[in-house]
């Protein structure tokens, strides 16, 4: 259901990408749909979601993230197994050739700990993605409402 929705909305996006949904490229990788949620104060961790498309023929992996917005940004994965959700640290997120890998609610996500300041809706901040093979690329992350469940460019209809 969600995949169908995302697919349909992705087409809308290609038709006319909004500025807020910029795409940055690094070799065969393109990175877009970077978003986060507003935080309540600065003591709770923020989240970072993004989509990475690998148009090449070589598998890559996202091995880390860095940002001036948080002193301790890490990759995590939400795993729901046997009815229990846990959130182990992910050493790296596979970015297979020919596929789009999403950091999205309920799955892989960046967890931004020790925030420099609270994230407010409407703000944006840079996150640098570090790939095993392709190197580094920086993307601008939009801060959406605390209640946002997906990137705003997906709601362009």
């Amino acid at each position: 259901m969600r995949n169908i929705l995302l697919g349909g909305l992705a087409m809308v996006l290609f038709a006319g990408a909004a500025q807020a949904c910029e795409t940055v490229t690094l070799g065969d990788l393109s990175v877009d749909h970077a978003w986060s949620r507003a935080t309540i104060g600065e003591s709770r961790p923020a989240v970072f979601y993004v989509a990475i498309t690998n148009a090449g023929t070589q598998d890559d992996a996202l091995t880390g993230i860095s940002t001036p917005a948080a002193a301790m940004p890490m990759l995590h994965e939400t795993v729901v197994a046997d009815g229990v959700a846990s959130m182990p640290h992910a050493m790296s997120v596979p970015v297979p050739a020919g596929q789009t890998t999403e950091l999205a609610p309920g799955g892989y996500h960046g967890m931004l700990m020790q925030l420099t300041s609270a994230l407010k809706e409407g703000d944006s901040f840079p996150v640098t993605l570090i790939f095993e093979k392709a190197g580094e690329v920086t993307v601008n992350v939009e801060v959406l409402s605390l209640r946002a469940e997906g990137p705003t460019c997906d709601d362009a209809s």
Binding site: R37, I40, R44, P45, A46, V47, H76, T78, A85, M87, P105, G106, H109, M111, L112, L146, R147, A148, E149
Partner: peptide, 17 residues
Amino acid sequence: FTNCPDVCPTTLSEVAQ
């Protein structure tokens, strides 16, 4: 728990909606 950045906001957002 309130320190949970991924699962809990998703559930709370759904409840709010």
